[in-house]
Write a protein that binds this DNA or RNA. Structure first.
Lengths: 207, 207
DNA sequence: CCTACCGATCGGTAGG
DNA sequence: CCTACCGATCGGTAGG
């Protein structure tokens, strides 16, 4: 597992040490996968981006597929652990949903490339990593749905289908990664707060 | 331009007649592009799906890129013309937004493959079609944003950033194409109505 | 980290 | 609609 420059916004088990050069390769691959897609990116493209010849890449990484798997696994695990950290110790459903959506939107504003790749390249991902990523995504969606169901039971939310609402909220937040550019003057935290508000309105948060 | 089996839910200039076999090829390609992506699909895959050898495809179509362009152009134009039809003659901002989102979500429930391809394969699309598709998407987003701005001016909506809201609403609707399966018992019209309601809640529709 | 090179596959054409 | 085939490119290895 590798260093993906996630800064301090994620808590995951320690990863193996990795050379600076390997980090460069993973980072360049991530940018290219996000821009052109996995199948639309060649190892020659990746090599050029880091200033070497294609065969030299294999001194730092195993295969092209391993590059994809690293990003997908790491990001999916980070999403779950950030969700847990966000709602941990919070009982009020309104606050739980607000924090969960805020954390998710924040991730997509900060890590747009990862967001794009995770949501677009599932079909290029090979088992068993593919299955683990699918399970993690499913678990996260279910967790959001349960927050909404809990809020409905307690009368905090007015929503017909918590499942439909969870889909709408999650995809809305994912899309932040597609347009967010920090240089537009908008801060990631502001966007995340806005989307958390959108989510609360969407589930009919009682005034 | 080709027949994409859009039924009667779209109004576009008449398209050229096209052989049934050509329609089959376009349809198979669309399914594969949606499933594996443009670069992840080979012409051999397409040929197998319609029961012929790869070189025979070229008796019906020009190039692989032309297959992508047909879907992208047709779908993008259909989105704009469905928007126009939906809001035409409707003055009330609440009703305008409801109808616009309903039409957009309905399209994505009915045409999940097209939705996936249009939103994922922009980077595989070549100019000049790419530029036209980008302009059409931009125009549609701006049109939705203007409906929201109008509603804010007239006091029907309570929303800080109509631009942010338009992004959230559009992406939420696009995602319907990713999970909607008619056999789950849910009808496309029901989903579309739900998403229209979500959109109105999101912009803080005054009660 | 390089050059040289591997077999496989790509989109597409020729010619019938 | 087929077989035969084209040059280009793919991911990856050998060997230094």
């Amino acid at each position: 597992m590798r260093r993906l420059s996630y800064g301090d916004d994620v808590t995951l088990p320690p990863r193996q040490a990795e050379s600076a050069r390997a980090t460069d390769v993973h980072d360049a691959a991530l940018s290219l996968f996000a821009e052109r897609g996995y199948h639309g990116t060649s190892m020659k493209d990746v090599a050029e981006a880091v200033g070497m010849r294609a065969p030299s890449l294999y001194n730092h990484i195993r295969t092209k597929q391993a590059l994809l798997q690293a990003t997908m696994l790491y990001t999916s695990r980070a999403v779950m652990s950030e969700f847990d950290a966000a709602v941990s110790g919070v009982a009020d459903p309104v606050e739980r949903l607000r924090r969960a959506v805020r954390a998710y939107a924040l991730r997509h504003a900060r890590h747009g490339r990862e967001a794009l790749v995770v949501n677009r390249e599932l079909s290029a991902l090979e088992d068993p990593v593919r299955t683990e990523v699918l399970m993690l995504r499913r678990a996260h969606q279910k967790a959001i749905q349960e927050v909404i169901e809990e809020g409905r039971r307690t009368g905090h939310f007015d929503i017909g289908s918590p499942g439909l609402a969870s889909f709408a909220i999650l995809e809305m937040a994912v899309s932040v990664g597609r347009w967010f550019k920090p240089e537009r003057g908008l801060r990631p935290e502001e966007v995340a707060d806005q989307y958390a508000l959108f989510a609360l309105r969407l589930v009919g948060r009682a005034p």
